[in-house]
């Protein structure tokens, strides 16, 4: 899981002809994506456009009605989330999914023990080595001051960072971040994204993040996938996507025209 497996292509993740409908609502309509290893991509689109459905299908929460998802050329379509995590695809959540009654340190310890192939019935969760590793991770995200606090006592930004820190504990090859800056104060968004990118620096992790803030998208992603009505309407560099007529009409609307001064 820690080292990239050999692949016949340069793509770590490929989605081929993915379709998913919830009754009359089409959440994915012939979605085709090929993501190169080490890339940082963002997913944009209005609410209900199919971004989170795509993330949920890739991570096993939803099974596509048809189509294939390949990870290192291996078909992972419909596998259980834990099996996909074990293979090397990890995710964080729009609403941080933490263990509410555990402290920040214990949340990290849970993710560390889960990252082992098999957690032990005998090895203490609070062993000196595990605590040191967990503390080190909290330090990387600069939230070590909160290590002994439970979720109720954590600010929103810290919860987000802890959620992401837990997701990267298993050293994934692909990391999907679902709206990493949502619910975070405007002035904390850039520092939060800087911290995440800094923590991932040099790890060659492929990152895909869902985002509504176009400034964040433009600053941190190399390529943008724009979703509308379950389809990918643009797949290009941030500059080109922002200039795309369909994207401006269906995704960014007038807000980007103003922000971009166009």
């Amino acid at each position: 899981m820690t080292t990239a497996e050999s692949s016949t292509t340069d793509f770590v993740l490929q989605a081929k002809n993915l379709n998913k409908a919830f009754g009359a609502v089409i959440a994915a309509n012939e979605v085709n994506v090929a993501v190169p290893r080490g890339a940082v991509w963002s997913l944009i689109g209005s609410n209900g456009a199919g971004k989170t459905t795509f993330v949920n299908m890739v991570t096993g929460y939803l099974r596509p009605d048809s189509g294939t998802i390949l990870f290192n050329d291996k078909d992972i379509t419909g596998l259980e989330p834990r099996k996909i995590t074990r293979l090397g695809i990890s995710r964080s959540f729009q609403i941080p999914q933490l263990c509410a009654e555990l402290t920040a340190l214990e949340n990290m310890l849970v993710s560390l023990s889960s990252a082992n192939e098999q957690a032990s019935f005998f090895r203490p969760a609070h062993s000196a080595e595990s605590v040191a590793n967990a503390t080190d991770m909290l330090e990387r995200f600069r939230i070590v001051d909160y290590r002994d606090r439970t979720m109720a006592e954590l600010p929103a930004g810290v919860r987000k960072l802890l959620d992401i820190a837990m997701a990267i504990t298993g050293e994934p090859q692909v990391l999907l971040l679902d709206e990493p800056t949502s619910g975070v104060a405007a002035e904390e968004k850039y520092p939060l994204m800087d911290l995440v990118m800094e923590a991932l620096d040099g790890s060659n992790v492929t990152v895909m993040f869902v985002e509504h803030d176009m400034d964040i998208v433009a600053r941190y992603s190399q390529r943008v996938l724009a979703f509308y009505d379950g389809q990918i309407i643009a797949n290009d560099t941030p500059d080109n996507v922002m200039q795309d007529d369909s994207v401006r009409r269906y995704v960014t609307g007038g807000a980007v025209a103003t922000a971009g001064g166009v």
């Binding site: 991570t59 259980e80 989330p81 834990r82 995590t85 074990r86 990890s90 995710r91 999914q97 933490l98 263990c99 509410a100 009654e101 555990l102 214990e106 949340n107 310890l109 849970v110 993710s111 023990s113 889960s114 990252a115 082992n116 957690a119 032990s120 019935f121 005998f122 090895r123 203490p124 969760a125 609070h126 595990s130 837990m166 997701a167 504990t169 298993g170």
Partner: peptide
């Protein structure tokens, strides 16, 4: 008590709190 203090023991407490997260961390 050894089990409660172990990695598996802590994972059980995590399941009590948030089963979905535990699955997404790779534990069954």
């Amino acid at each position: 008590r050894v089990y409660f203090n172990s990695e598996r023991g802590l994972t059980a407490l995590a399941i009590r709190d948030n089963e979905l997260r535990v699955e997404y961390l790779g534990s069954s």
